[in-house]
Design a protein around this nucleic acid. Sequence first.
RNA 1: GGCCCUAUCGUCUAACGGUUAGGACACGGCCUUUUCAAGGCUGUAAUCGGAGUUCGAUUCUCCGUAGGGUCACCA
Length: 497
Amino acid sequence: MNPTENNPKKIVTRFAPSPTGFMHVGGVRTALYAWAFARKNAGTFILRIEDTDKEREVEGSIEQIMKSLQWLSIGWDEGPDIGGPNAPYLQSQRLETYKKYAQMLADKGLAYADPYTPEELEAFRKEAEENKKPFLYRNHRPENPPVWDGNQPLRLKIQDAKVSKWHDEVRGDLEAGPEALDDFILMKSDGYPTYNFAHIIDDLYMGVTHIFRADEFISSTPKFLALYEALEIDPPKFVTLPPIMGPDGKKKLGKRDGAKDILTYKDEGFLPDAMVNFLAFIGWNPGDDREVFTPAEFIQAFDIEGIQKAGGKLNEEKLVWFNKEHMKKLSDSTFRAGAESLLPAEFKNDPAYARKMSGILPILRERVSVFKEITEMVSSGDLHYFFMAPEYNSELLLCAPKMRKGREDATVADLKPILEKVISLIEASSLTDTSTPEECRSVLWDYADSEGRGIVLWAVRAALTGKERSPDPFAMCSILGPKETAERLRKAVEKIG
RNA sequence: GGCCCUAUCGUCUAACGGUUAGGACACGGCCUUUUCAAGGCUGUAAUCGGAGUUCGAUUCUCCGUAGGGUCACCA
């Protein structure tokens, strides 16, 4: 565990969430960029769990975080489940290391024990607030702090409260006034390190070269810098990502403001590749007009230069569009498997189920942007007509007047001979169960043309589907086959009476 | 309140001093057409405001304004 053993040239990034619940879009995006950057540069991507706050820890979070990442195929090279050269990857198991460094800083006089009670601290804070001044602990720094025994908080002693300057790979040169610097806590009185301390020690040990982080960390960077200085180490590169705002654009996306668990998108049937593509584009773009990327293409195109500074809103409509684009890339068998898993069992009772599905699938591919929509179609009855004779009112058989062209006075009763003629055409034809929509079309076309396409074709379609909106009659005829088609038309004739 | 970040169509963005300010989503129209869907074509729509610098500012500087972040023994 000697930090100097790490090869300084190899790119190492990490994603270091705290196990406080599910992951939302913001966290996953951070992970995605860090991962993509490591992959692009043949580097290492580490998953590290920052579980130093026992209070806020939520049972099962770690599993959920890993599951979320796995769904999107964001794979880590080192992590709590698979170990690695710098194990363990759970901060709660690295306490000795933090203690060692804490003691070293205390011994050097660079850190000191905080003797105040929480109440005393609160009083200082209140006082500062009343005077409309920022609260700075260093203004209350004890003159003769007790020897640190691990039971008090240990604070870093800011040697020189100066203007901090640093470089950010995305934001450029940044600086902050001395107010940003204060004696912050390294070790808590419960023996756990703070995030501010632990992540720096770990990044050092794990050889992290680039810290991908959300922009709320900009304001604490001066503190990190002071610690790097006290530790006499060079800071890694900071890659600060723009914030993601909620759909209302009012606030940074966060769990308390109703951000969704990333896995709910999975449940809704979004494709992982689409999600990755969508996430990639919140705050990054390749600099040209390309938008649809596979994960591999994204890694290839990704670079820090393309990362935005300004925040962006979460736009789920665009996610749906991305999903549609990625659905198009799905193989027929993958699409079929996804679609079939959402169909009710009763559809499979149809002896012609398998044959029908091959006709239905292209129709579904044309209409569905997200798999979830198939479930919606099922519940609104937009799929039942493929397998079961529809229920409908005979009025539906007559198309709207504007489609009647010259037969505006037509009534439902006038449809009876028309449908009978269609039935006879079908029965006299050579159509079979495997006839294509085009073949069905050729059987009906001339007659429909002579009688008025609107009036004939609407009636046939309505008789076959029982819906105002549905696939065209030729596709339906092809899927149902001539026998079932004729049966449904006969039912329509009976309905007219 | 202090400190900090950000600012191009409704939304995501391109432009790295000189463009009729481009693309995508969404929205509208047209075409195709038996409905819907899909597809093709197409339209509306933006440089936050004010000073500078410059022959010339979306682009550089400053000042406003607005939005966001942060000021924990949370990360």
